[in-house]
Design a binder for these strands. Structure first.
Lengths: 213, 213
DNA sequence: CCTACCGATCGGTAGG
DNA sequence: CCTACCGATCGGTAGG
């Protein structure tokens, strides 16, 4: 049954709320839970966050999150998956753009920094720092997405090397760059010092060194 | 009947021990607790590790760690402090050596990598990834040590810049390097791929770029 | 350092 | 999504 059919005549019977299908409101509440959980998991860790913390933050009673998620683990998986799907989409858009190597890399770094540092962006930091709390089954599913993400970065590094902007495009170099960028989550304070754009600028200069001049 | 899961209690040889002074044995047991706690905190996180886990790992009963430490928090602080004191000593030794800038930097990177990646070296990773679990009072005391550590790195970066090996020795550059090196704790597998020495080599080349050639 | 224990809290559930 | 609840577990303690 189509969810929205503009051309069908109005139903003869007065509309009643569907009792079986998942309502729009349910989906919104679920999204609320994922969003506040991301923030709490980032601030206090997965083990340091209780289901009651999460329920409080969205104005539910302590047992109610389990109407939307089977377990606390499932909430964690949802947070990570949402962050990675969004991050992957952005990465692919940039990788497939027609920009030249240096510019493409710059945009990639800036976008990743925004993903890690901008307000309300807690999904990827949770992915980075709560990975060990995720069950092996959930990990396996998310690794598939993560591999695609990594592959796109590796492609851009290969472009940089062809352009003579870096001397090595090894996996180790990618991981070192990734570490440098991801670690900003630990020390960067919004509104103090550099803006995210300025930070991206300095990071790119550092990564490409004097080779790019 | 088969529910005899837990480790058997330590042999109970009643033994005379000094009642007032802290015996050598007490100090050894305390060191044992710190060492196994470092490993457990790294593997499962502070909140994911129970005092019972720690007691089991050294062959004590669940209440006994509290003979050596007032709280679980105090164990965490001891782990971090021990790691930082050792790391700071090594860093100062290198910074004050007569090596030239590039060589000094290389040794610094390699030593830090060993601190993060070598077997049984769990203290600094715990410091890096469980910082938020430490109470503000403990944090304040440890920040003093951490500042000294950072200052030594900054000194070496200034040397690198004077030698023309890097184009910027800003704090941001130090933090990016630190992130790249620290993040290895998340992906490096001992005995697979590069050795720690080889990794140090590649990291230094990446950090100094083509400028050093 | 062990025995024996406690109050608090936790993830999760039954039934509406 | 709430009410009412449970079994398990946790950090920590008294007393020896």
């Amino acid at each position: 049954m189509p969810t929205k059919t503009a051309t069908t005549p109005a139903p003869r019977t007065p509309r009643k709320r569907p009792l079986v299908t998942v309502s729009e409101e349910d989906r919104n509440r679920r999204a609320d839970l994922v969003r506040v959980s991301a923030r709490l998991f980032r601030e206090k860790g997965f083990d340091g966050t209780t289901v009651r913390d999460i329920a409080d933050a969205v104005g539910m009673r302590s047992g109610s999150p389990f109407y939307h998620f089977k377990t606390k683990q499932d909430i964690l998986a949802a947070v990570m998956e949402e962050g990675l799907v969004a991050g992957l989409a952005a990465t692919e858009r940039i990788a497939d753009s027609g920009l030249d190597a240096r510019e493409k890399f710059h945009v990639l770094v800036r976008t990743h920094l925004e993903t890690v540092l901008a307000e309300g962006q807690d999904f990827i930091p949770v992915l980075l720092y709560e990975w060990r709390s995720l069950s092996p089954e959930h990990q396996a599913r998310i690794i598939t997405l993560k591999d695609k993400y990594d592959a796109r970065w590796q492609d851009v590094l290969a472009e940089l090397k062809r352009a003579g902007l870096i001397t090595s495009d090894s996996k180790v170099v990618r991981l070192l760059m990734f570490g440098a960028v991801n670690y900003t989550a630990q020390w960067y304070k919004r509104g103090k010092g550099l803006s995210i754009d300025q930070l991206a600028e300095e990071a790119v200069e550092f990564f490409l060194g004097a080779a790019g001049e």
